[in-house]
């Protein structure tokens, strides 16, 4: 395990395998909590924490966990960290917790977390698993923040609550509704594919 390979594990989550766009995984929170940039960012951080912690435990326990019951084991590990995130958010960022609502408990069944445990951490060493989790988590956070920014700027005329345009700005409310999430995600996927071609 050389230094470069660790860095590669980290950076692959940022572009080559950036979760919502390249792997097209974890779309439920991607579409649902990106009405504004702060909810997207908070969701990303919560998922990053769960992802890194579950990758660490799965990687450490990969020789002990019998293959036949690996999925229940993953679920226990992931669910534990999700509940920890939920409690900590309630204790320190209650208003964000209220706005994210059901999507925090739903991280348990998020396919990025389960997917990385199954496809990566269960087969790889501790160091690589940590970097993989970090990379994927940061990639997810970035994607949600960018998507949230675009939707908030066009849909509400604000960014993280700050007024950007004058009173004359007519908000394009389509962007903060559910169909706007799909259209916005599709356009971003298209742009990323174009950029990847060259």
């Amino acid at each position: 395990m050389s230094e470069t390979s660790l860095v590669q594990e980290l950076t692959k989550g940022l572009w080559e395998e950036i979760p919502p766009f390249r792997l097209v995984l974890g779309l439920c929170p991607t579409l649902a909590v990106t009405k504004a940039v702060d909810t997207g960012f908070g969701m990303g951080l919560a998922l990053t924490f769960v992802l890194v912690c579950s990758n660490i435990l799965v990687s450490l326990g990969r020789k002990v966990i019998p293959p036949k019951v690996r999925v229940p084991c993953f679920i226990i590990i992931i669910a534990t960290f999700v509940v920890i995130v939920e409690l900590v958010m309630q204790a320190y960022t209650y208003s964000l917790f209220l706005r994210l609502g059901i999507f925090i408990p739903l991280i348990v069944v998020n396919c990025i977390v389960l997917g990385r445990a199954e496809a990566f951490a269960y087969k790889q060493g501790l160091g690589r698993s940590i970097f993989d989790g970090l990379g994927m988590g940061i990639g997810f956070t970035l994607s949600l923040s960018v998507l949230g920014s675009i939707r908030e700027i066009f849909g509400a005329g604000t960014w993280a609550g700050m007024e950007l345009f004058g009173a004359s700005f007519q908000p394009f409310t389509f962007m903060v509704e559910a169909p706007g999430a799909f259209v916005c995600l599709g356009l971003m996927l298209g742009v990323m594919n174009l950029a990847g071609k060259k």
């Binding site: 669910a79 900590v88 320190y92 209650y94």
Partner: peptide
């Protein structure tokens, strides 16, 4: 997992109650 969660729950309980009252 149960033990860990019980620990986190007891250590955040007071804070959570405060936040709920506050909001």
């Amino acid at each position: 997992s149960g033990g860990g969660l019980a620990f986190v729950k007891t250590s955040t309980e007071e804070k959570i109650e405060y936040q709920q009252l506050k909001f």
